[in-house]
Structure formats: C-alpha cells, structure tokens
C-alpha cells in the first residue's frame, strides 16, 4: 500500500507541473500548425505570469489577473505575428527577441512598481485560484485504490488544471473538425493553395497567433495565480522550451501533446522525488540526468530513432503573395 501511496503523490505532482506545459504546448500547436515557428512560448508565458501577478495584486481579483495575462500574451503574440507575418522577418529571431524583452522588462517593471526584488506582492485568498474539492472526496478516501484516485488524484486541483485537460479535446476538435482548423492546418502545409481558394493567408496566420496568445496567457496565469501566490522573476525557468520539446515529441498532435507533457512532467516530479534516494537495481541516478532527459528524448526523437517527427511543411517560411 505504501508504494501505491507514493505513486498517487507522484502522479498528483505530475499533473500539477504538467498543466503549464500542456497550455503552452497547445499554444505552440496552433501557431506551428499555421506555419509559424514559435520559440517565444517561454517569453509569452513569463509575460503573462507577470501581468497576472501584478494585476491580481492590484485589483485583488483573480479573474482580472487572468484577463490581463491573456491580453499581454496576445499582445506579445501579435508582435511576433507582425514581425514574422507582415514584415516576413526571421521567426526564430523574433521569438528569441521576445524571450529577452520579456525576461528583462518583467524584472524592471516589477521592481519599479512593487519594489520587492522583481516579485509581485504575495496574493491573498481572493486574488488567486483555489483548489476545488470534489463532492464526498473526504468520505471516499478510505476506500482502497479508488478512494485515493478519486480524492487525491482527480479532486483537489485548480480550475485551470481542469481547463488545461479540457483544452486538449477542444483543440483537437477545433483543428480537425472545424473549417477554421482545416484552413489553419492548410496554411501551414501549403499556403499557396489556401490563397488560391480565396482565403487570406495573412489573416489566417494572425488568428493562429492570437489563439497561441490566449493559451500562453492561461499557462502564465496558472504559474503565478495557482501554482504559487504571485510572480517571481524568471519563474517559467525553461518551461516554454520544455513545452516546445513536448510539442515536437508529440509530432504536432493534440492528444500526443497531453501524453508528452505528462511524461515530461512525470520526469520532473520523479527527479524531485529521487533526489538522494537510490533506485532499486540501477542505484543512484544523477538528478541532472533526469532533468536533461526530456531534452535528450526530444533530440533522439527528432533524429528519427523513435518514429519520425515531420513538422508542418511551410513552417518557418513567410508567405509572399505572388505579384
């Protein structure tokens, strides 16, 4: 039973750390499927987390915080969109630029406005998300196996956690079952054909970028309003890049993204759990190896050793309408 208990705790923290990854990777799914590379996920998430923390601290309203996160994240996405769609600039360069601008300005503005060393003030009860306890969670807990699964694993998360997992089928439905999704994917594979059909490639790509902004906004808000009570400088700590890795690892498919994020989240949770504890048979595993594993797995996958990851065909190429 002890092993089972450890497993439940491990899976619970897996879910907790996977949520921002799922949001961010789905965000990347929308842009990359529309043919725009986005390594600015990290920056957008960080900007959103800061906006959420700052606005929630000032207004004492968690929903205003969430709204601010989404708006800022959309604004940053539009900068990326303007550079890579309208100005036909290099999409990778633009993403790198956004990451830097956000990393710097969140600290400078946070320090100027709140004077707490780049943090936003700690948020009280009403200014952050509370966990939701399912009905009868406490009374059912004693039931073996099912009890802990219901009470600890399924119940007791933030509302954004449930939103994140709901976004997976929703994104799938949007991308694969709506006209908008079909066109969005077409723009990423063969923009010329979409243009011939009389649909504006530019406008399609801008809409994809806005979708990305909304989802990154959720990711950021989760970090500063749910996972912790307030913004801490550099709090994304490379999660945007892990999300990018998950997106590729999932071969640009929504349900695979969820699994990849859970896998990477599990590795993260396991690394924390294993710190200092030797593993049976293998012995002591260096924490650093566990931390590097998501990246190593992604490299191996990209190299085509575990299946083949084929990116959208028109990815990274700005569309020039023939004159």
């Amino acid at each position: 039973m002890d092993f089972f208990h450890v497993l439940v705790v491990l899976l619970e923290s897996t879910i907790r750390v996977s949520v921002p990854l799922i949001f961010a990777a789905l965000a990347g799914l929308f842009t990359e499927r529309a043919g725009i590379f986005d390594i600015g996920l990290e920056g957008k998430m960080l900007g959103a987390a800061f906006a959420a923390g700052a606005v929630a601290a000032v207004t004492q309203s968690v929903w205003m915080g969430l709204l601010a996160a989404i708006l800022i994240s959309i604004a940053l996405s539009l900068v990326h969109g303007y550079a890579s769609i309208t100005q036909r600039g290099n999409q990778i360069v633009s993403g790198v630029a956004i990451n830097f601008i956000v990393a710097g300005s969140t600290v400078i503005l946070g320090e100027a406005w709140f004077r707490q060393g780049g943090r936003t003030p700690a948020l009280g009860e009403g200014a952050r998300f509370q966990t939701i306890t399912f009905p009868y969670a406490d009374s059912i807990r004693e039931i073996p196996i099912l009890g802990p699964i219901y009470s600890d694993l399924l119940s007791g998360h933030f509302i954004l956690t449930y939103v994140a997992f709901a976004m997976v089928p929703i994104s799938w439905w949007i991308l694969y079952r709506t006209r908008f999704g079909l066109r969005l994917r077409a723009v990423g594979e063969n923009p010329g054909a979409v243009d011939t059909a009389g649909i504006s490639v530019i406008w399609m790509r801008y809409r994809a970028v806005i979708c990305c902004g909304i989802l990154c906004g959720f990711a950021g808000a989760y970090l500063s309003l749910a996972m912790t009570a307030g913004f801490v400088k550099g709090m994304t700590a490379g999660k945007g890049y892990i999300a990018l890795a998950a997106l590729i690892f999932a071969k640009w498919r929504p349900f695979n993204i969820m699994l990849a994020c859970l896998l990477f989240g599990f590795l993260d949770a396991l690394a924390i759990r294993l710190q200092g504890n030797p593993l049976p048979l293998i012995g002591q595993v260096p924490v650093q190896l566990m931390q590097a594993l998501p990246y190593i797995l992604t490299v191996i996958l990209l190299a085509g050793f575990i299946g083949k990851a084929i990116p959208p065909k028109a990815g990274g190429v700005p569309y020039v309408k023939e004159r």
Binding site: V79, Q87, G89, A97, I101, V102, A103, G104, I108
Partner: peptide
C-alpha cells in the same frame, strides 16, 4: 537603483527584434 542590470536584457532583446526580425521595417 530602479534600473537594474536587467535593462541590458531588454535592450538586447530590442536590438534582436529591430535589427533581426524587423530588419526590413
């Protein structure tokens, strides 16, 4: 004191944005 070294990071990002991604603006 209100302008910490992170200002450099912003400028760096802006240079990358304007000299790189928006070079044709």
């Amino acid at each position: 004191p209100s302008i910490s070294r992170d200002m450099i990071v912003i400028i760096q990002g802006l240079v990358i944005l304007f000299a790189g991604a928006l070079e044709n603006m």
